Amino acid sequence: MKILGKELEFPDPSTADSHGLLAIGGDLSTDRLLLAYRSGIFPWYSDGDPICWWSPDPRMVFDLKAQNPIKVSKSLKQSRRNRNYIIKQNTCFEEVMRSCMDVKRGLHDGTWINEDMIAAYTDLHRIGVAKSIEVFHENKLVGGLYGIDLKDKGIFCGESMFSHKTDASKIALWHLVEKLQHQGYRCIDAQLYNDHLSSLGAVEIDREVFLSYL
């Protein structure tokens, strides 16, 4: 495992350990984050610890070239039709991040978000790289997600999502899947396996296959 210094570099993802941990240290500068995502690497660490950089094998993705990249249940269709949710994009990026931060979960069940990450990803949002999907009900933000849009690669790197009302985060994801499919994207990177993502239709692929997309 490499300890990063000031140099803008990462080791080859194939050198990651069995859990996907590739390196520690470095910073959350815009240039380093862009290099990381374009190299199939992402930061993920507990508050107060050094920055940890990951490139897991296998990789969890929503395959947008598949016939049904997301599992849409009858109840989810009813929610989208009947709950009067309004879907918006990029209108309150930082609020989405902070709502995701408030979701309590362990390191390998979701992205840990702290103030440094909020500042770094908000900078990425300002230059049009980090984006959010937001779900509103009665003018109140009730769900959403955010991630890194590698538009030229046809990959959206999903970071985290939250829901304060029934199916709000799932509807945000469904909207994103439809939007990206229409634009010809290849996949949504969901990073690491968990049961919730699997239930929504995400699948595991070899790291080398994912890196070939980049």
Rank of each mutant, 00 (worst) to 15 (best):
Y193T: 00
D27K: 02
P11L: 04
R83Q: 07
A119K: 15
M117F: 11
P13M: 08
G20R: 01
H164K: 15
D17P: 00
H164L: 15
G26L: 12
G20T: 06
P50C: 03
S160H: 01
D12H: 13
K153A: 11
F210D: 10
H108T: 13
R126H: 11
S75Q: 02
A66F: 07
L141I: 07
S212N: 14
D152H: 12
E94N: 03
K6Q: 12
L124K: 07
A23F: 08
E9S: 14
F93M: 02
P56F: 05
E115I: 08
T91V: 14
D152C: 05
R105S: 13
I3D: 06
G144S: 04
Q89D: 02
S212G: 10
K65V: 02
K88A: 13
K104D: 15
D102I: 00
F162W: 11
F93I: 11
D109A: 11
S132K: 01
R81N: 15
K104A: 09
L214P: 08
H175L: 00
I3L: 15
A172R: 03
S199F: 05
L64T: 04
D47V: 11
A202C: 06
K6D: 13
K74N: 11
S46K: 14
I51L: 10
K151D: 11
N90H: 07
S198C: 10
H196L: 03
S55L: 06
A172C: 07
Y213C: 07
N90Y: 04
C157F: 09
I70V: 14
G20D: 03
G128K: 06
D109P: 05
D189A: 04
I188N: 09
V203D: 00
M101S: 11
G143I: 04
Y146A: 05
Q191S: 05
I118S: 05
R98S: 10
P56K: 03
H19F: 13
L197Q: 13
I188T: 02
H19D: 12
G26M: 01
T166Y: 04
G154N: 10
I24W: 10
N114T: 13
D12T: 09
E7V: 14
D31Y: 05
L28E: 06
L145T: 09
S169E: 03
D102Q: 12
T15P: 00
L173P: 04
C92L: 08
M1L: 12
D167N: 15
R186M: 02
L180C: 01
S132V: 01
V72Q: 03
I86L: 12
G144L: 05
T166N: 08
T91Q: 13
K104I: 00
C52Q: 14
P43A: 05
A36F: 08
R32Y: 01
S169F: 09
T30R: 15
A190M: 03
L76A: 06
R83L: 14
L145R: 05
D17Q: 02
W174F: 15
G5E: 13
R98P: 09
S39W: 09
G25Y: 09
I133T: 14
E208F: 09
N68E: 15
K179F: 12
F62V: 12
